[in-house]
């Protein structure tokens, strides 16, 4: 193996430092004894204890997790259907429009998505009486809307790689189209569904802008709580919370990585 030049090593170290130093500092300071976020006062886990007693933060975290799980699941279902339509159904009328519209949320400014969702919910409520005010439900719906686009892109890539003759072989062996989907297509694109789900989950978990538009009085998500409390002053409790979230996300990503790499050998 070629030896790395010292310049390359320095450049790489600086790059990683730039990316990960803030996160590292956050984790380190979550174990800070001192109440002042910027002053090191010795090691302690007391903020984790405080956190466990802070109902407001915990409620918000629990709500955020539930919304994230629900919207990730919804987005995976819709995004997969969308990807299959685009990849498998050939050139139907309006395909280009459909394709453009499903990917538009990727580049849409969040403020516009949030505002338009809000207007939609208000108009809907006036016309039909549903949804009854803004709540966790409206946040989840808004999150599904934009996360679907991400899932669709991920699944499309996987479907595009998949050998069509696998599905044809299943049809040839007597399986009806729906059977083919559940026994052949779905297992083979499963890794991309897992990846899409995790992506949608994280996107929903850290969304502040859209949630702010469509949340109601009783539905304050974690990013909203963090954001408003940080404006009043930093608190080591937030660091502790962020560290726990970081751990959870890292755990999910590692599991997903193991699942994906275990299946790689079986790829068609």
């Amino acid at each position: 193996m070629r030896r790395l030049s010292p310049w390359l090593v320095v450049a790489m170290a600086l790059g990683y430092l730039f990316l990960y130093a803030p996160i590292l500092i956050l984790v380190v300071y979550s174990f800070n004894e001192s109440k002042l976020v910027t002053v090191w006062g010795g090691f302690s886990t007391k903020w984790y204890g405080e956190l466990a007693a802070n109902d407001k933060l915990l409620d918000a975290a629990w709500l955020s997790l539930r919304i994230a799980a629900a919207s990730a699941t919804g987005a995976v279902v819709l995004g997969t259907l969308c990807a299959i339509t685009l990849v498998r159904f050939g050139r139907f009328r309006g395909r280009l429009l459909f394709s453009a519209m499903t990917t538009a949320p990727l580049v849409m400014p969040e403020v516009i998505t949030g505002l338009s969702m809000l207007l939609l919910f208000v108009a809907l409520q006036q016309l039909t009486g549903w949804p009854d005010g803004r709540s966790a439900l409206t946040i989840a719906i808004a999150h599904i809307t934009f996360a679907t686009a991400y899932v669709s892109v991920v699944v499309q890539a996987r479907l595009g790689q998949m050998d069509r003759s696998l599905e044809e072989a299943a049809l040839d062996l007597g399986a009806r189209p729906l059977r083919v989907f559940f026994t052949i297509t779905l297992p083979l694109i499963l890794p991309s569904l897992v990846a899409g789900w995790l992506l949608a989950f994280t996107l929903s978990l850290d969304d502040l802008v859209i949630a702010s538009f469509v949340s109601g009085p009783g539905s304050t998500t974690l990013p909203m709580v963090v954001f408003s409390s940080v404006r009043l002053g930093l608190s080591p409790e937030i660091n502790a919370l962020a560290t726990i979230l970081l751990g959870t996300v890292a755990f999910c990503v590692i599991i997903a990585g193991i699942v994906l790499s275990r299946r790689r050998g079986e790829r068609a």
């Binding site: 050998d163 072989a169 007597g174």
Partner: peptide, 20 residues
């Protein structure tokens, strides 16, 4: 008649074995 109702089977050029 759709492929799944024909008494005919095919060996694909790429073999198309189900990898999972």
């Amino acid at each position: 008649t759709p492929p799944y109702d024909r008494p005919v089977n095919m060996v694909f050029q790429s073999y198309a074995l189900f990898p999972h």
